[in-house]
Design a protein around this nucleic acid. Structure first.
Length: 584
DNA sequence: GCGAACAGCGCG
DNA sequence: AAAGCGCGCTGTTCGC
């Protein structure tokens, strides 16, 4: 349906900015020829992309999806695939799979400026560098020539790498993720503001007339704390003051955090925990949050693909990745629509089993809850202990309950444990580790290396050695976790990308007024609405939900086979079809 | 008076 | 400062 005999198929099409602020494009055909550059006035971009997309669905090669795709989506234009030069550069310039990184290293204008970093904030710092010479890849639009030469560098890097197949997968997955992040923002999370208000009112009391007023139940909990501590004017929101008051009341604590206070018993503590819980809900996700973030039945967070060193997404705006479970019932499908909610059971341990080729661990998770499967091997007594042990193995616990249980795991799952122990060992020695598909951990920073060399100097003090030892261990825990967390993020991207691909071919449904809030591209089709590391929610016309659920399930199997051919490890989903997300 | 740093807690 | 990883957000404290 897409083939057009008059023109050869377009494989990929690069876009760049002109100095005048317009675009130009160069199309690369299947027969090896190229056409262009074609000038595109900025106002014609959506039309140009829509036409080429309809006829050829090329891979769009552009500087940054975050910079162009939101506008395309709001103009009603969806694209099938892209190559996000900025995100891919970030991966390749660090990847240990790429033997010769000199060309990428020299392309400093492509270094991504962290989205959270405000360049002007750096102005006040010491003048270590000439700020005008600093790379500002994210802020400076790339020309077509820039984009083409960077694309060449990146393909050369992949082709010359030790794992071109894996790296290609990673770049495709990362780029698909960039499209999905923009699409999630465009579609928005269907959010029931009235339900959110009911949840707040039930917990905190009726909405106060002004943000400055404390809700009744929060104020009441505060009053009970002050009474129990015999300090009627105490400010509970100031940790130093609260700490002094707690100690004055005879509670021997070194902090005001719940984990430590939970060890003590005092009549003030129950009300204090209640106060903290309510205060957190009000300040992080109270009525002010609702007013600021929910419009027309949608919450639109900003996702930042690759925002975490491990490759996980970050977010900014409203804390999309930290929505408290109590608010989940506010996530509600439009009338006539429903939600398909799926999360992966024990994603990280399963990823570890797959990447280490630990057949015993793979077997423990086959057709069952992995933790129960570990209990069935008779190495660990119960599910809770199995979970604590597993987390300890992946995070590097050395003491306590968790540290005590890890050695049991080491006996039954030597290959899996060998992989994470090896990663920790490399990190402790200052080395770099790499995920399955090729994302490498950052190098040890200057402070860290100095601390290590300081400790090995002839005049090193016991303190020097202690500091070096501790920071080495810390880095070991980071690299230990990096390989697992990072590979799990890669699996999740592959899962997302496959779901997205399948959903795009669903037939359009009838017009539904409330769904218009999801914008022109998504208001008539099932679409991803939420993503949280190992969980997705698809918002879908109710009559297509069963089919969507099958797609989500099949995509998990596909992601497993894509990353780990052979399918030794099951990636099990917990899947529900429901109008409203529930707390659990 | 402003911004960085910290404490605390939400999520995986 | 959790015994153990990765984040973002809010309110307070602290230093310039």
């Amino acid at each position: 349906m897409r083939s057009n005999p008059a023109t050869p198929a377009v494989r990929w099409c690069a876009l760049g900015r002109t100095t005048g602020g317009d675009f130009e494009a160069l199309a690369h055909h299947a027969d090896g020829t190229a056409s262009g550059p074609t000038p595109i006035p900025v106002g014609d971009l959506a039309g140009f992309v829509a036409t080429l997309e309809r006829d050829h669905a090329p891979r769009w090669v552009w500087q940054s999806s975050a910079a162009v795709y939101p506008q395309l989506l709001s103009a009603g234009v969806r694209v099938e695939r892209c190559h996000d030069l900025r995100l891919c550069h970030q991966i390749l310039r660090n990847s240990q799979y790429v033997a010769d990184r000199s060309a990428l290293a020299a392309a400093t204008q492509w270094i991504a400026t962290p989205a959270s970093e405000d360049i002007s904030a750096a102005d006040s710092g010491p003048a270590l560098f000439d700020l005008d010479a600093l790379p500002r890849g994210h802020n400076q639009p790339a020309t077509l020539a820039d984009a083409l030469s960077e694309y060449d560098r990146q393909r050369a890097a992949v082709n010359g790498s030790s794992h071109p197949g894996r790296l290609s997968l990673l770049l495709a997955a990362e780029s698909a993720g960039a499209l999905i992040a923009a699409e999630l923002a465009a579609a928005g999370i269907p959010w029931d503001a009235a339900e959110h208000d009911r949840i707040l009112t039930r917990a905190l009391g009726p909405r106060p007339a002004s943000y400055a007023d404390k809700p009744a139940l929060l104020a009441a909990a505060g009053a009970r704390v002050r009474e129990a501590l015999g300090d009627p004017l105490l400010s509970l929101d100031s940790p130093p003051k609260l700490l002094r008051a707690l100690r004055a009341a005879g509670i021997q604590t070194s902090s005001t955090s719940q984990w430590e206070l939970a060890e003590h018993s005092h009549p003030a503590l129950g009300p204090l925990f209640e106060y903290k819980k309510l205060s957190r809900l009000l300040t992080a996700n109270g009525w002010a949050w609702l007013d600021e973030w929910v419009r027309m039945g949608r919450y639109r967070p900003v996702y930042i693909p690759g925002g975490v060193v491990t490759g996980r997404w970050a977010s900014n705006g409203g804390g999309a990745l930290q929505l408290p479970r109590v608010l989940r019932p506010a996530l509600r499908a439009d009338p006539g629509w429903t939600l398909v909610i799926a999360d992966v059971s024990q994603l990280e341990p399963r990823v570890l089993a797959a990447m280490s080729g630990d057949t015993a661990m793979a077997a423990a998770g086959r057709d069952t809850d992995l933790y129960s499967g570990i209990v069935a091997t008779s190495t660990i007594a119960n599910r809770d202990d199995a979970k604590i042990a597993m987390l300890g193995a992946m995070y590097g616990a050395t003491s306590g309950e968790s540290g005590r249980l890890v050695p049991q795991l080491r006996r039954v799952f030597p290959r899996a444990m060998g992989l994470v122990d090896g990663a920790a060992d490399i990190g402790e020695r200052g080395g770099t580790v790499t995920t399955w598909l090729g994302r490498s951990s950052p190098e040890a920073d200057l402070d860290w290396r100095e601390a290590q060399s300081q400790a090995s100097m002839p005049g090193a003090t016991p303190q020097d050695e202690q500091i070096a030892r501790r920071s080495a261990r810390e880095r070991g825990r980071f690299t230990r976790n990096f390989v697992v967390q990072g590979t799990a993020a890669e699996w999740a991207l592959a899962w997302l990308a496959e779901i997205r691909k399948q959903l795009a071919s669903f037939p359009e449904s009838e017009h539904s007024p409330s769904a218009e809030s999801s914008g022109p591209v998504f208001s008539r089709r099932p679409h991803l609405a939420f993503f949280l590391h190992d969980e997705i929610i698809v918002h879908t016309p109710a009559n297509q939900a069963a089919q969507v659920a099958e797609v989500v399930q099949a995509a998990a199997a596909a992601a497993g086979n894509l990353l780990f051919p052979g399918g030794a490890v099951d990636f099990r989903l917990d899947l529900h079809i429901t109008d409203r997300a529930t707390k659990q």
